[in-house]
Design a protein around this nucleic acid. Structure first.
Length: 592
RNA sequence: GACCCCGUAGCUCAGUUGGAUAGAGCACUCGCCUUCUAAGCGAGUGGCCGCAGGUUCGAAUCCUGCCGGGGUCGCCA
């Protein structure tokens, strides 16, 4: 654990306790709003804390005077971070009541050493304390190949999972297969149509509700290879279920293949149909019933535009309004089968029973209207112990050289995830999917994302990593490999690094653990991608400084000691970029 | 009509969970290749953070009400 903000916070807390013991501060103050963060302005030092301002009110003191007492209380205390131990910092009170903290270079040197010692584990956190988290993502209907929007959800979910793992959670990646509703029956009928067609029957246009995609032609061939003409001419009652299962199986195989293309694998596939057939849904309903949360009733018609066929109907309803939803929600269709909501409640209940206090669902933004009712159900069944966060992913719009790529399922100009990934590669796809917040629409331009220039963030970051390795390769020509190993570099005379740009890079690297934690807490993996871009920029800058001023070059034949110190910095940069890319799921290439 | 998301530089977007003088990329202007990859870097121009109130030491961030864009709205998933 090397988090300089966190480490300083501990020191600050000790000082606050001391002030409380001396009667300067009241006992048992609420310290939750006290923050130690990196300063935004260089003029404000390197870290700053709002402690005095936050505590001024409750302790009835002038913030500025409190800040000054705090500064005194901190003076000459021992500070421990990343292997450093000493008093190499200065604290000063500033204007409204901030405390600005400055460090001697030795503190940053220790940070760099600690990074090299931690290696790929630098930034690991125990924020999650080994708590179990379930992340449900993708969960595309098993009725056809995946499109780009599914791909976005896949990357967001998978990167979030990796991020939470790095932050100390035990993560289960789950795919919920919607294989129980009407749409998989439609899939079976579509397959049957393709089956008859493949067996030589001449048919007209496909029915309206059918899935017209050509992928089912292959599935029909596979079916023939498997079952021959067994189903031909038989009544629907005989073939519907077996063909549905066959089709869903094939679709899931396709989907897994597509996911494998972008490096996504799930730990758990849960079948909606199984939840129904094993009685898990019925059990769930019984449990709600016992809690008095289910009733038969008629819903108010929606205000504003009234649906054409609206008529008052008595339905089986869940009292979602008790838990913050706008209306109570139906659990059964008029044919007696479960609604999607009912089975989904059962799915979340299963997760809670499996011991997940935290569940995260990654959905498309079109499901936004569904969030409250699902959270209501989780609250109702979890007794407040379980929590559900839903990440909604906005649309991905495809462009090529600035022109929108027109897509229509009907017209057949439908771009699948596979096509996109085959065109641009897994790494580009994954990185670009994280260059926007999940709730922001994302423009994906084939030309731009494959461009090798600084305008392309994927390239920009990978290039920084490759450059670092390029330096190491050059160094290896003059220095023995044993001197370039991480352990050896950790022992280099790092204190020789004195240039402000070098120290600035170390400072940025030292923020990595804090960034991992805040991104994990916010469930926002895109922050990793943005951090890597900043880090890459800082490194490219340093590189160019070496171009301009020979004394700033990494490799100096005249000064092997300084060379090794700089290589330590270069190596640390490569480590952090690689560990960030690992979360995003992008390969850190060593050559471009 | 209700609910959810979004609104930040001309464009595309970040903004460390309420901090100090709001940032980056593109575009535009001007600079930097005898030297580890110029596939890069620097400088400059550019802002009523949609509008109006409120909360407090302090608001792009939290609350309320509007305006604009998108999504959703009883047996689709």
């Amino acid at each position: 654990m090397t988090d300089i903000c966190g480490d300083f916070r501990r020191l600050l807390m000790a000082a606050l306790e001391d002030l409380a013991a001396r009667g300067v501060l009241p006992q048992r103050l609420d310290l939750s709003r006290v923050a130690v963060e990196p300063a935004r302005e260089p003029a404000h030092g390197e870290l700053s804390t709002n402690a005095a301002m936050v505590l001024a009110g409750p302790s009835r003191q002038d913030p500025m005077r409190l800040a000054e007492s705090l500064a005194r209380a901190l003076k000459d205390r021992e500070f421990e971070t990343g292997g450093y131990r000493g008093t190499g910092f200065r604290v000063e009170a500033a204007r409204p009541g901030f405390l600005n903290i400055r460090f001697g270079a030795e503190v940053w040197h220790a940070q760099l050493k600690a990074i090299l010692e931690a290696g790929a584990h630098f930034g690991d956190s125990d924020l999650g304390r080994g708590e179990k988290v379930n992340i449900e993502f993708v969960s595309a209907n098993p009725t056809g190949p995946m499109h780009v929007g599914h791909g976005r959800g896949a990357v967001v979910g998978d990167a979030l999972a990796a991020l939470l793992e790095k932050a100390g959670y035990r993560v289960t990646r789950e795919y919920y297969i919607n294989d129980a509703g009407a749409q998989v029956d439609a899939l079976a009928r579509s397959l049957y149509w393709r089956y008859r067609e493949a067996l030589g029957e001449s048919l007209g246009a496909m029915p309206e509700e059918a899935y017209p995609g050509e992928y089912l032609i292959d599935t029909a061939r596979a079916l023939i290879a498997c079952d021959g003409e067994k189903w031909f001419g038989r009544p629907q009652g005989e073939w519907l279920a077996p063909l549905r299962d066959f089709a869903v199986g094939e679709m899931m195989r396709l989907i897994r293949e597509d996911l494998a293309l972008i490096g996504v694998t799930h730990d758990l596939f849960t079948s909606e149909r199984e939840l129904v057939e094993t009685g898990a849904v019925a059990e769930t309903l019984a449990e709600l019933e016992k809690g008095g949360l289910i009733y038969r009733g008629v819903l108010e018609p929606p205000k504003g535009k009234l649906p054409e066929d609206w008529e008052p109907r008595a339905q089986t309803l869940f009292r979602a309004t008790r838990f913050g939803d706008e209306v109570d929600r139906p659990l059964k269709k008029s044919d007696g089968s479960w609604t999607y909501f009912a089975t989904d409640i059962a799915c979340h209940r299963k997760r809670m029973k499996d011991g997940f206090p935290l569940m995260i669902d990654v959905w498309g933004a079109d499901h936004g209207g569904y969030v409250k009712r699902m959270q209501a159900a989780v609250t109702a069944l979890g007794g407040g112990k379980a929590q559900l966060d839903v990440k909604l992913c906005q649309l991905v719009r495809l462009f090529d050289k600035g022109a929108p790529v027109k897509m229509s399922k009907r017209a057949g100009t439908f771009v699948t995830l596979r096509e996109v990934v085959e065109a641009v590669g897994k790494d580009v796809f994954r990185f670009i999917m994280l260059t926007r917040r999940n709730d922001q629409t994302l423009d994906f331009d084939f030309a731009k994302v494959t461009e090798q220039s600084k305008d392309n963030p994927v390239f920009y970051v990978q290039y920084a990593h490759a450059r670092a390795h390029s330096v190491m390769r050059h160094a290896a020509e003059a220095l023995p490999a044993s001197a370039l190993a991480d352990e050896a570099l950790a022992g280099a005379r790092i204190e020789r690094l004195e240039d402000p740009f070098e120290l600035a890079l170390i400072r940025r690297l030292a923020l990595w653990p804090r960034l991992v934690e805040s991104a994990a807490e916010a469930h926002e993996p895109h922050r990793i991608a943005f951090f890597l871009q900043q880090l890459a920029a800082e490194f490219h800058l340093l590189w160019t400084k070496g171009k301009e001023e020979a004394r700033l070059r990494f490799i100096l034949a005249s000064d092997p000691e300084l060379t090794l110190a700089r290589l330590a910095l270069v190596r640390a940069l490569a480590l952090v970029i690689a560990s960030g890319l690992a979360i995003i799921g992008v390969a850190p290439c060593e050559e471009m």
